[in-house]
Design a protein around this nucleic acid. Structure first.
Lengths: 215, 215
DNA sequence: TATATCATGTAATCGGTTACATGATTAA
DNA sequence: TTAATCATGTAACCGATTACATGATATA
């Protein structure tokens, strides 16, 4: 087997291009933060790199939009080959979940630290995740709204670069009907379920630490 | 602020040395896989690197145990400075959870892939996580056993390398009393809760995909 | 007036993964 | 007797994070 040519982030970016249409790296970053940050984080510099990588692979094409005040926009579009690569990746089995949570680490070796500091950390985490939970709950309820908001980045503004006029067909047999996006919704539901579980555990943990502390 | 000198994995390794006593890199890797893999993965090569890093920082010391058939064992021990660094890290706030799950990614863009393949992936994931759940449940119940099993790596075998005779004191004010390790237990409980939530969602997702498929 | 945010991207560095080595013992 | 597993570690490479650049507009 030849050297690996693409990775989860690669496909994340590819998926966003498939899902939301042609975009610049900057737009991809925005979309990424909105939709994917809970399950995979990425710096913008890396997204640009993945776009270049995929250009070399022929999975996307780039059209340069010249601008004056700012650097030119490089607008990327998924190709047919890219669509195939995406679907192929999704078909391959994949099951490696890595949960990188520093708080869990700190708590695991909790017996080496002053309980007060740990409790403070847990409290901070609780606030943070309560926030996220609210956000995710809103997402589940207002998914169509979110989708529109995201679409606007692509659909408003003048991007009559001719990309469409080249006939770059995207028939896309599985193209999402944006009336309802059940997969998106399903993942959003997971985010909610996860945050609820995590929060419940955090409260439980706080009780345990403080109960152990006093008394 | 000077360049960052240590990272989550660094402290993970350090914590294991504090928790289980002097070990070689190989032993650390074993312990790592047992205790930390759910929340932070690491290749053995990286663990060796972290040990070297910490040696330079003065957080650990190394004693070489010569062997014939195999490469020499380099046994690392945490120093007082290392213990301070560990506790200090735990005291700092930390809340960045990154959950890297390829399956979630694949499902998110599910509308671009054949539902049958997705369902197959979900089924495989279900089997995998059912396994993990059983394992974690056993951990919660038999924690003392697990701890003993891990301890044995360090406590059996001949390691009278003189490390102890140098008077390397490890008074360790918060040293875990191995009768019960409440923090370890608490984290194990999280692992169980997480797997339960994840599995429930996987089943739900499978239903959704298949329900949509037939009918 | 200074600081953030919008907007876009490149370059350098470092964490993390994969590959490379070596040899003994145990299992298929 | 071929292949895992035990055992132990180094070297090379690549994904991912941090830093570097640039210049507008909006906000405090």
């Amino acid at each position: 087997m030849e050297k690996q040519e693409a990775f989860p982030i690669t496909y994340s970016v590819l998926g966003l291009l498939a899902f939301m249409g042609p975009m610049s790296g900057y737009d991809v970053k925005r979309a990424f933060d909105h939709m994917l940050s809970p399950m995979w984080g990425a710096a913008h510099s890396q997204i640009y790199k993945e776009l270049r990588r995929m250009e070399n692979l022929g999975w996307v094409t780039m059209e340069r939009e010249e601008q004056e005040d700012r650097p030119d926009r490089k607008v990327y579009s998924i190709t047919t080959k890219g669509q195939e690569a995406l679907a192929d990746w999704q078909t391959q089995p994949a099951d490696n979940l890595q949960m990188r949570d520093e708080l869990l680490l700190k708590l695991l070796f909790g017996s080496f630290a002053p309980p007060g500091a740990l409790a403070a950390n847990v409290r901070e985490s609780i606030m943070h995740h309560e926030q996220r939970l609210l956000q995710y709950r809103a997402n589940v309820q207002y998914l169509p709204v979110l989708e529109n908001a995201l679409q606007h980045h692509t659909t408003n503004e003048s991007h009559a670069t001719g990309a469409k006029s080249t006939g770059m067909k995207r028939p896309n047999p599985y193209a999402p009907q944006h009336e309802t996006e059940p997969y998106l919704n399903q993942v959003a539901r997971f985010a909610v379920a996860f945050e609820e579980t995590y929060l419940k555990w955090l409260y439980e943990t706080l009780d345990a630490i403080e109960g152990r502390n006093e008394q």
